[in-house]
């Protein structure tokens, strides 16, 4: 690990200001992903700003009947919150399907959104990777790509976003609140937080240098059957090959977002319009424009089958 200086921030705006002036600075909250990457020298910040003391760890009910989830709420606390379990079951399920209990106890809401891909070539510093080393090439395209993306990918990168939580929040129309160095705040729809990789896969979010996520907002509950189904190589503690977050209403309409297949939580209004016609029609609309590799082409039928299982469960 490269040496770094360290400070404990005492307000969100002060944290943002400290990071804005130093492109080599990083925020650290749970640290479960960042420290792992620092040990491998994939992340090499020269300064860490510890945001754990910022008191952004509460879940409040908002005036419009939704929830405001503080950026530092741990994954365990969010999954176990009575309001989340009752009204946003898909979010609780997604969180509990991710990582291990030890990691969920530390990992935060904002950190979960900002975690990096687990593409094996991103992790292997001896291999070219456009995300880690812009312009060096993508080893995954012709390499081991079984876990990697099939849609929304580019010639430069086929990495997936590994979060389960973000997939459920995408289905729930979550928005992200931030603060910048000048203390101004803004709200970003979750749909616009993660960038498409294009030719610049190293640019992963639309956040400015130093911009700090302070909360995630969920609109008022929309009811429905809420299901998170995750297909993976082990029964527990593994990343998704395909996952589906679904909120299905009694009339068969609903929302679906998918994980494990794209560089960001993948939601398609066209697919949702086909939901009442069944999994086959919805999967076809969802996967329009997919470009799998030979190794991960199995994800296309897997998407349809997972969707089919989710729709059956919703009807049961």
């Amino acid at each position: 690990m490269r040496a770094f200086t360290y400070e404990r921030a005492n307000s969100p705006a002060a944290a943002a200001a400290a990071a804005a002036g130093n492109p080599e600075a990083k925020f650290i909250a749970g640290g479960t992903n960042l420290l792992d990457l620092m040990k491998l020298q994939i992340e090499t910040p020269s300064h860490l700003i510890d945001v754990n003391g910022l008191k952004l760890d509460t879940i409040e009910t908002t005036d419009d009947g939704g929830l405001r989830i503080g950026a530092l709420v741990r994954n365990t606390a969010l999954a176990a919150d009575a309001r989340v379990r009752r009204d946003y079951g898909v979010l609780s399920r997604a969180l509990l399907a991710g990582a291990s209990a030890q990691l969920r106890n530390r990992a935060t809401t904002a950190g979960n959104l900002l975690q990096r891909t687990r593409c094996p070539y991103f992790y292997d510093t001896a291999q070219p990777c456009n995300k880690r080393e812009p312009g060096s090439g993508c080893s995954a395209l012709g390499g081991f790509s079984r876990q990697l993306g099939v849609i929304g990918v580019s010639e430069a990168c086929i990495a997936t976003h590994p979060s389960d939580m973000a997939v459920a929040m995408r289905a729930l129309d979550g928005t992200v609140e931030t603060v910048k160095a000048d203390a101004t705040t803004r709200t970003i729809p979750l749909a616009e937080l993660h960038r498409a990789p294009g030719t610049t896969p190293h640019l992963e979010t639309t956040l400015a240098q130093g911009e700090l996520i302070t909360a995630v907002r969920l609109p008022r509950p929309i009811g429905g059957r809420q299901i998170y189904r995750k297909v993976r190589d082990r029964a527990s503690y593994a990343f998704a090959l395909v996952s589906v977050a679904a909120v299905i209403q009694r009339d068969g309409s609903g929302r679906i977002a998918l994980g494990g297949i794209a560089p960001r939580p993948w939601r398609s209004e066209a697919a949702e319009a086909e939901l009442r016609r069944g999994a086959k029609a919805a999967a076809a609309a969802l996967l329009e424009g997919a470009r799998p590799t030979r190794e991960n082409a199995f994800k296309l039928p897997l998407v349809e089958r997972t969707l089919s299982a989710v729709l059956s469960e919703a009807r049961a």
């Binding site: 360290y6 749970g30 792992d36 040990k39 030890q102 990691l103 106890n105 530390r106």
Partner: peptide, 23 residues
């Protein structure tokens, strides 16, 4: 030393965590 095996699990303020993935 990467949070995958759990051998380093300790209890901090009442919660189990991977002590290898925290400073």
């Amino acid at each position: 030393d990467h949070g995958q095996c759990g051998a380093c699990t300790v209890i901090v303020d009442g919660q189990r965590i991977n002590s290898c993935l925290t400073l």
